[in-house]
Design a protein around this nucleic acid. Sequence first.
DNA 1: CCTTTTAGTTCCTTCAGTGAACTGTCTCAC
DNA 2: GTGAGACAGTTCACTGAAGGAACTAAAAGG
Lengths: 145, 145
Amino acid sequence: MALPREYEGQACSIAKALEIVGERWTLLIVRDAAYGVRRFSDFVTHLDIPRRVLTERLKFLVEQGILEKQPAGGREEYVLTGKGLALFPVIRALAAWGDEYTSPSGQRRIIRHVACGTILERTGRCPECDVYPPVGDLESTPGPG
Amino acid sequence: MALPREYEGQACSIAKALEIVGERWTLLIVRDAAYGVRRFSDFVTHLDIPRRVLTERLKFLVEQGILEKQPAGGREEYVLTGKGLALFPVIRALAAWGDEYTSPSGQRRIIRHVACGTILERTGRCPECDVYPPVGDLESTPGPG
DNA sequence: CCTTTTAGTTCCTTCAGTGAACTGTCTCAC
DNA sequence: GTGAGACAGTTCACTGAAGGAACTAAAAGG
């Protein structure tokens, strides 16, 4: 990348979003963070990502306000901010598409609305409550795929 | 990439989806295709993408069944398949996030449901008709951002 | 203290992206 | 027909990012 991370630089929110989360590994780091991974070494083992790349990505995500470094019992941990949590619909849309078109046996993970226990639609809506629950109200379990 | 396009290779639909559409430029090509761009040279000028990379991506997307090469008045054109159109929620989610967090002045593009003229929610729902209209029923105009 | 874990660095190699120039093919006016 | 452009790629030399393994510094824990 001669112009790192820049696609067109101008008036497109999709391009702008991709400049920030479009790099290799980035969305997988956010996904792991959304599922509770917080420490450097855990990201390394879960993702099997080169440590050098992880260092870069974490640094960048912190700079962008998607992750936050929080002191946690001595060592620091990486925690998603609101801006980071707001990426969950993107991840859910990718998962839905991946389920639909790359998995031979249906959804790989089932996401429930904790409040009512109902399985969400692929769009993220809870058909029982007719709302789009925030990430904190969701529970994810392995599906048939 | 020693193992090209492979993240973990296993049981994660997000990783699987990203193996296919997670590479640089790919989602922007799909976005352009969704907005009607069909010819090689048009992608080049719209995206300012290196021709070599565009060739690779188009070839890969056709292999994956996301784009289709269609003869159109002599020359061939690249058209989204159903699998490709199904990526629109991903693009919409990215755009929504980009609008929210990278644009100083609100939504950059406004998407309407052609049938009723109503502006869609950021989730893609038409509040008037209470449906998630397919891409073909949408109309996109520049917003304030 | 001394050992182990954790969080990064450093180094080297390989591969992918970039940009410009080049080639072959199709189209259309004349 | 045929010559001028447009169009769709290909080729090439260069740069920068990713990958993998070994190394280092600091903190945790006994």
